[in-house]
């Protein structure tokens, strides 16, 4: 008993130390490259965690997450470019718009199951991309440019670093809390067997809707900050299908049954991805993560953490089993 509480304090202590170190990291004046590297890693942590609410817990695999992300980015862009409004509050507004979009789309789309849901979510992203490509108000295929924060690039990167660190931490903690709550138990019951869950009195349409909207809200906020960070939006940048897939891969790679999986997957893969993109080439990186996706689905459908643990415990994990 005592050991257990001690262990818990150890964990909390460790968590606080790590967070503190990450928090003060920019003060050491590292090269900007590292800041943007970590910024992107945090962003993917936040995205993967928010995606995992639906994709991991309920097993409703969405490829439309970038639609919500882009909604956030475009909200910032439009407010900056058209109205000259530039507080971070637009990020929250982006989250709000994304949530509204999710509510509108979710009502019909969440009735679909399996592949049909996935395809519809992908279509949502594609249709939005096509519309944004041709909608002059949001810059159509030229995109929208706007000013960076009126401070030096170092300070600029530092601010965004801290904001994204905060977002990633907050979202991960919220998702972790959801996982352990009754809400999360309901979502997991839906993944196991939606019909059985319904007979157990779980209001599955409502739970799915909540998870979908919450995930979309997070993605919108993240997009809002991101839009501010890059100071330029373009449909082909924000609505990139590869981003959706990368998020999915990160969750699956880490293991999408728990909040730890996306966290681990997003950190490892986003760092590896960025390093390969920077030093070798984007195509090679995509080739590698495409292969990784296949390998993960075939050999470690529960994620690499589970897989490695399985190797040590000598418990036999059956290939191709589990949530898929």
């Amino acid at each position: 008993m005592r050991d257990k509480t001690n262990g818990r304090y150890m964990k909390y202590g460790l968590f606080l130390i790590v967070m503190f170190m990450l928090f003060v990291f920019p003060v050491l004046k590292p090269p900007l490259f590292f800041l943007s590297l970590l910024f992107t890693a945090y962003m993917y942590v936040a995205l993967a965690e928010s995606w995992n609410l639906m994709g991991g817990y309920t097993g409703y695999i969405s490829l439309g997450h970038i639609a919500f992300f882009s909604t956030g980015a475009y909200t910032t862009a439009v407010f900056m470019n058209r109205f000259g409004v530039s507080p971070f509050a637009t990020a929250l507004l982006g989250g709000f718009f994304a949530a509204v979009l999710a509510a509108l789309v979710g009502y019909p789309v969440l009735r679909l199951k399996g592949a049909y849901f996935t395809i519809s979510s992908l279509l949502l992203a594609v249709v939005m991309q096509l519309i944004f490509m041709n909608w002059d108000f949001v810059g159509s295929s030229v995109g929208l440019w706007y000013k960076l924060l009126p401070v030096s690039i170092e300070i600029n990167r530092m601010i965004f670093y801290e904001v994204m660190l905060f977002l990633a931490t907050a979202i991960t903690l919220i998702v972790r809390w959801v996982e352990k709550s009754k809400f999360g138990a309901g979502l997991i019951a839906i993944r196991e067997d939606e019909d059985v869950a319904k007979t157990m009195g779980i209001n599955s349409p409502w739970l799915k809707m909540k998870a979908f909207i919450l995930g979309a809200f997070f993605a919108g906020v993240i997009g809002g900050v991101y839009g501010y960070y890059i100071a330029y939006v373009h449909p082909e940048v924000t609505f990139n299908i590869n981003t959706s897939l990368l998020i999915l891969l990160m969750s699956f790679f880490g293991g999408c049954r728990t909040w730890v999986g996306p966290l681990f997957g997003a950190i490892v893969l986003s760092l590896v991805n960025q390093l390969i993109v920077t030093f070798i080439g984007a195509e090679i990186s995509r080739i590698l993560y495409g292969m990784l996706l296949v390998v993960v689905i075939i050999f470690m459908p529960d994620g690499v953490i589970h897989y490695i643990r399985g190797l040590f415990v000598h418990r036999k994990i059956r290939h191709g089993d589990s949530i898929l």
Partner: peptide, 28 residues
């Protein structure tokens, strides 16, 4: 992948990977 519980979903995700690989090999 055909050994998976939900073959449709597993094959969908895995072949997404294949699509990316082949596309980028061509593009490379």
């Amino acid at each position: 992948v055909q050994r998976a519980k939900d073959v449709i979903m597993a094959s969908m995700v895995a072949t997404f990977g294949v699509a990316i690989v082949v596309e980028n090999v061509m593009s490379y």
